[in-house]
């Protein structure tokens, strides 16, 4: 079956084993409400991870997307409050656009100055966060000020079930958006010229240039998409938690990068699949959320995430050494 490459199959296997183990330790894991809430936690990290996947396939790394997510979310929500505007489509377009434009800045600097993406994105992240917090404001937009349409949008469910005691729980409709974006990126990466150029650039930038790819356009596509997805995910996050906090997402970049690496993408570029990333995100979110279910103290959470990242990169490093690209 073409859908599962060998690497993706291994990740899926790890996922299944982990699910069985967690389920054995605490059967509450398998309750439908827990699974639904897990899926809900996947959406925002997953959307950001799809952007980071593109960057990693192109051989780069991005630590600025969380700052872009904050910019998209906070600028849009604040202007909605200021203009007393209530709507859904226009705000999400605006947040996506803000993220995309900021991504364009990354692409421009990285391509024009031929500079290491990590250092550039460290810089742009600091610039964007500094401007948002310094010029726009540092206070939260709370639930009583949040635009009603955004809240209503964020709490839409596609499936509502009733517990034995009469309370209800549902599966968020945002999961549909996540799946649609994942399928879209998968198709672009595998079926279009620009998608193939990302792999080519990541495997060997010089070779890609000589074959005739317009590498500047590839970089713009990669970083703009990553930024746009981050901006979109940022606003989606605030509409799902009914709060816009300009200090949000600090440190989330590590979780997202860990998830993408866990999903089999190589930091040297040229390798990585959407399916692997989606599975990687699910594994990361599941293990983070299940620590309490497994009776592990939450202070261990960062040790566990860091350890998982190291284990995942060690495995990918061994794989890359065995089969040099």
């Amino acid at each position: 079956m073409k859908l599962f490459g060998s690497a993706d199959a291994i990740i899926a296997l790890i996922l299944v084993v982990a699910m069985v183990l967690i389920g054995l330790i605490n059967p509450a894991f398998w309750q439908l409400s827990n699974i639904f809430s897990l899926l809900k936690s996947n959406v925002v990290i997953g959307l950001m991870a799809l952007g980071v996947l593109l960057v990693m396939i192109s051989g780069g790394i991005d630590v600025s997307f969380t700052a872009f997510a904050v910019a998209g979310m906070y600028l849009v929500v604040r202007s909605m409050v200021a203009l007393d505007y209530d709507g859904v489509i226009l705000p999400f377009l605006a947040a996506t656009l803000i993220g995309g434009l900021l991504g364009l800045m990354n692409a421009g600097i990285i391509h024009k100055f031929n500079m290491i993406p990590l250092i550039v994105t460290l810089g742009t992240a600091s610039v964007v966060r500094g401007l948002v917090l310094g010029l726009v404001g540092t206070s939260n937009v709370n639930i009583n000020q949040m635009p009603d349409a955004l809240i209503a949008f964020g709490r839409t469910d596609i499936l509502t079930l009733e517990r034995a005691n009469g309370t209800t729980f549902g599966l968020t409709a945002m999961i549909v958006i996540y799946i649609a974006v994942a399928v879209g990126i998968h198709l672009v990466l595998t079926r279009t010229m620009i998608g193939r150029s990302v792999y080519a650039y990541g495997a060997d930038a010089e070779a890609a240039k000589r074959v005739g790819f317009n590498t500047g356009r590839t970089m713009i596509f990669v970083y703009c998409t990553a930024g746009a997805l981050a901006g979109f995910a940022g606003l989606l996050h605030s509409s799902m938690i009914w709060l816009a906090n300009p200090r949000d997402f600090v440190g989330l970049e590590l979780d997202v990068i860990a998830a993408v690496v866990l999903g089999g993408a190589s930091i040297f570029g040229g390798r990585g699949t959407v399916l692997g990333t989606v599975l990687g995100v699910f594994i990361l979110v599941m293990i983070q959320n299940s620590l309490i279910l497994m009776g592990i103290d939450t202070t261990w959470q960062r040790v566990v995430v860091g350890g998982m990242l190291i284990a995942a990169v060690a495995v990918t490093a061994l794989r890359d050494r065995r089969a040099p690209v």
């Binding site: 600097i109 100055f113 500079m115 250092i119 550039v120 460290l122 810089g123 742009t124 992240a125 600091s126 610039v127 964007v128 966060r129 500094g130 401007l131 948002v132 917090l133 310094g134 010029l135 540092t138």
Partner: peptide, 15 residues
């Protein structure tokens, strides 16, 4: 926060 902005801008300018 604006000092953070200046640090970041400085880094990019140096690059």
């Amino acid at each position: 926060h604006l000092i953070d902005f200046v640090w970041g801008a400085f880094l990019i300018a140096v690059i």
